[in-house]
Amino acid sequence: MKITVIAVGKIKEKYFTLAIDEYTKRLTRYCKLEIIELQDEKTPDNSSEATNLQIKAKEGDRILASIKDDAYVVALAIGGKMLDSVELSEKIAGLGVNGTSHIVFVIGGSLGLDDRILSRANYELSFSKMTFPHQMMRVILLEQVYRAYRIMGNEPYHK
């Protein structure tokens, strides 16, 4: 299975980079992982709703250009379905059993995802009703995907 993480924004903090590198290394045993880091748009202070929509649209263009037509797209969205770790593992395993060979997880920028991304998504996943910085969300997502593969393999990590 190929897992792609498309994320808007750069990782600036070394401790996030180290964590991402660690989970990337661990995941190579289970899947082919690709991380696509896209440029975020600068959001002016006190920007209008119209400006925010334009920013999300520009970021959305970049995201859509990075998604292959045959990919199963999982958008990370606050309004998405919340799963526990076992359910996420079952979701990923089920997709593989049903012939999906490429899953794309999309992490939006500071304003969230453009509606076109949510429309393109096959599934909307929420990790919490809280908002997390995209850098931290990338680490959390990779850790949960790693945990999912460990659960699938009946390996002890997830307990």
Rank of each mutant, 00 (worst) to 15 (best):
residue 19 A to N: 01
residue 44 P to Q: 10
residue 137 M to E: 00
residue 100 T to D: 00
residue 151 I to M: 09
residue 34 E to C: 14
residue 19 A to E: 03
residue 56 K to S: 08
residue 96 G to W: 11
residue 147 R to Q: 06
residue 88 L to P: 13
residue 123 Y to A: 11
residue 61 D to A: 14
residue 78 I to A: 03
residue 94 G to I: 06
residue 29 R to A: 11
residue 126 S to V: 06
residue 32 K to F: 11
residue 56 K to W: 03
residue 87 E to P: 01
residue 144 Q to C: 04
residue 144 Q to A: 02
residue 35 I to C: 05
residue 159 K to V: 09
residue 32 K to V: 11
residue 3 I to L: 12
residue 20 I to M: 07
residue 66 S to M: 08
residue 2 K to F: 10
residue 35 I to A: 07
residue 131 T to H: 07
residue 149 Y to M: 02
residue 37 E to L: 01
residue 111 L to Y: 01
residue 89 S to R: 02
residue 115 D to E: 15
residue 91 K to Y: 12
residue 84 D to A: 09
residue 141 L to F: 08
residue 68 K to W: 04
residue 132 F to C: 00
residue 108 G to F: 07
residue 44 P to L: 06
residue 60 G to W: 04
residue 40 D to S: 13
residue 112 G to R: 12
residue 127 F to Q: 06
residue 90 E to W: 09
residue 53 L to T: 11
residue 138 R to P: 04
residue 79 G to Q: 14
residue 106 V to Q: 06
residue 23 Y to K: 01
residue 103 I to W: 06
residue 63 I to W: 11
residue 116 R to N: 10
residue 113 L to T: 01
residue 19 A to P: 00
residue 5 V to K: 02
residue 81 K to R: 07
residue 124 E to K: 15
residue 150 R to T: 15
residue 67 I to L: 04
residue 36 I to M: 04
residue 20 I to A: 03
residue 78 I to Y: 03
residue 52 N to I: 11
residue 29 R to E: 12
residue 31 C to N: 06
residue 91 K to Q: 13
residue 34 E to V: 12
residue 156 P to F: 10
residue 10 K to M: 06
residue 126 S to F: 09
residue 72 Y to H: 12
residue 76 L to E: 10
residue 52 N to V: 01
residue 101 S to Q: 14
residue 142 L to W: 01
residue 100 T to E: 14
residue 24 T to M: 08
residue 31 C to E: 05
residue 128 S to D: 06
residue 79 G to D: 14
residue 91 K to M: 13
residue 32 K to Q: 13
residue 49 E to K: 15
residue 124 E to W: 14
residue 96 G to I: 05
residue 132 F to E: 04
residue 38 L to G: 03
residue 35 I to W: 07
residue 158 H to G: 02
residue 91 K to T: 14
residue 93 A to H: 14
residue 143 E to C: 00
residue 28 T to G: 11
residue 23 Y to V: 08
residue 145 V to N: 03
residue 4 T to Y: 05
residue 132 F to K: 00
residue 134 H to F: 05
residue 78 I to S: 01
residue 92 I to K: 08
residue 9 G to C: 04
residue 3 I to V: 14
residue 42 K to V: 12
residue 14 K to P: 00
residue 129 K to S: 09
residue 133 P to D: 09
residue 83 L to H: 11
residue 105 F to A: 09
residue 102 H to G: 00
residue 115 D to A: 12
residue 47 S to M: 06
residue 124 E to M: 14
residue 4 T to S: 07
residue 81 K to T: 12
residue 20 I to R: 03
residue 60 G to Q: 08
residue 66 S to W: 07
residue 155 E to L: 13
residue 35 I to R: 08
residue 25 K to Q: 14
residue 26 R to P: 01
residue 78 I to F: 00
